[in-house]
Design a protein around this nucleic acid. Sequence first.
DNA 1: TTAAACCTTATAGTTAACTCTAGGTCAATA
DNA 2: TATTGACCTAGAGTTAACTATAAGGTTTAA
Lengths: 137, 137
Amino acid sequence: MKTYSISEVAKELNLTVYTLRYYDKEGLLPFVERTASGTRAFKESDIDALKVIECLKATGMPIKEIKNFIDWCSEGDSTLRQRFDMFMERKATVESQLEELNKTMELIKHKCWYYKTALDAGTEDIHKNDKIEIPIN
Amino acid sequence: MKTYSISEVAKELNLTVYTLRYYDKEGLLPFVERTASGTRAFKESDIDALKVIECLKATGMPIKEIKNFIDWCSEGDSTLRQRFDMFMERKATVESQLEELNKTMELIKHKCWYYKTALDAGTEDIHKNDKIEIPIN
DNA sequence: TTAAACCTTATAGTTAACTCTAGGTCAATA
DNA sequence: TATTGACCTAGAGTTAACTATAAGGTTTAA
């Protein structure tokens, strides 16, 4: 079965070898096997697991919580409920992050318009008596 | 004209007084005036500016770059181009963040389904010979 | 007039997530 | 066989963004 070195995995996932070793040290990669001389040999499935770790990180989950999930995975079927609940909670988190980011986008677009018109007029004074059109909250 | 104390502003914007003083120290709030005894007196327009600062923070912009923007604001119409360009760049950033977060959501949803079916079956083995349906990249 | 509840500054401490260094092992090649 | 380069660990250093503490000033209500 083909395996990959730490630098190959780092390149593939746009991480550094430092980061991967750090993840391992934090207990995120207990499944990665070693050669006789101690070198990490990543399997295809390990790379898939790392993609899930990166996904959880992208939701803002701290590494210590990701470790809990990894531990549950090692414990087998008895933790299926926890893992299901965790992903449902992540789903809710990402939903509200998307909502927040869309609100942010609205204000940014407003500012793009504001500065485009000001730039065309040569001065910001053109907006001197604007009413507030986009309440932020 | 009505003004607000630092703790009133903190409450309104869901920040701490520590954070607001930190922002001030970092040069993000040069427009906030003081009473004779040195206490900060926030105007309505200062709160609006803070909302813009929070918006930029929500796009992942570091405080030092937000400071550049604040400095440009103080310099007047000669910096309109920079400010316009900055918001256009932020728009592109948020667009790709939204894209990324939507991809993340897809994987999370897949995992919700994966664990729901496993939970119903009582074992993860039900997915033993699944093909990969959602390539992450 | 004094105590509580604010405010101030300067400075130190915290936390997460890396990021790097030092000192060493190992396998392949000139 | 000597050297190059990729790997290893332990532990130190970095950075951003807070977060807290100490020591003191001001305002307000009893």
